[in-house]
Nucleic acid binder design. Sequence first.
DNA 1: TTGCTTAAGCTACAATTGTAAACTGCATTT
DNA 2: AAATGCAGTTTACAATTGTAGCTTAAGCAA
Lengths: 125, 125
Amino acid sequence: MSDNLASKITDSELEVMKLLWCAKDALPVTEIREKLQGSKGWEPATIKTLVSRLVSKGVVRQEKRNVYYYSPVITEKEYSSWATKDLITRIYNGKASDLIASLVSSNGLTKDDIAELREMFKVEE
Amino acid sequence: MSDNLASKITDSELEVMKLLWCAKDALPVTEIREKLQGSKGWEPATIKTLVSRLVSKGVVRQEKRNVYYYSPVITEKEYSSWATKDLITRIYNGKASDLIASLVSSNGLTKDDIAELREMFKVEE
DNA sequence: TTGCTTAAGCTACAATTGTAAACTGCATTT
DNA sequence: AAATGCAGTTTACAATTGTAGCTTAAGCAA
């Protein structure tokens, strides 16, 4: 995923992406709207704008059936790992372990998190 | 640090913050400019705008001496841990360990990082 | 003191973002 | 066929951001 694609997903747009990522298949605007109108209180027009912008940005694909169906071009994993690396670059001088150290020292980790991490980084043998 | 303060530090502004965080004492614009003009290629006016915006946002304090001196109101640690939590909230559903798992699975960690993390999460005693 | 240099403040302006209305054309209903 | 409704497109508009010029005031040099 190139820098300027992901970097351009804005907060509002991200809500649309999340929905598309959850969906098994491509969705028509109707459905996107249905889901988001309630949760976000957005007008139909707003949602259409967001979807269109995501298409322009190349992170959502549209396929014409009866009506357009929309699906993500990038996966959620791709996006989140990109966003994470971006954070590390911008504010941790590129050092991933500094991010984690910051999480630890700012009590950003729950007991469960820590247990999982212990497991994750246990020295194998 | 309240949400709307930190959230408002933009990329360009962050460069100014980084400089102020490095400085032991408050700096006059002259010095901020000196440091950033070279590295960022910004015009003096641009730098003044950024500094002023940071002051409006309440994250930089100005004190009048001969000339205004600027210093950060929030620490780098406060900011980075805020930004990290924000990322976790926005894209990892609030689960910090998911962030770390994503780093692991996307090869975002160097050997050194991993060594440090093993150390960090080693079961003590 | 008189002008020059520069700090600080004010103004500018395009691009992006959040939010949405207006319009347009096709399909479905009556 | 005429009208209605909604998908898709275009336009809108304020706030924020990136980038910077213009103006004013004050200190320093001549």
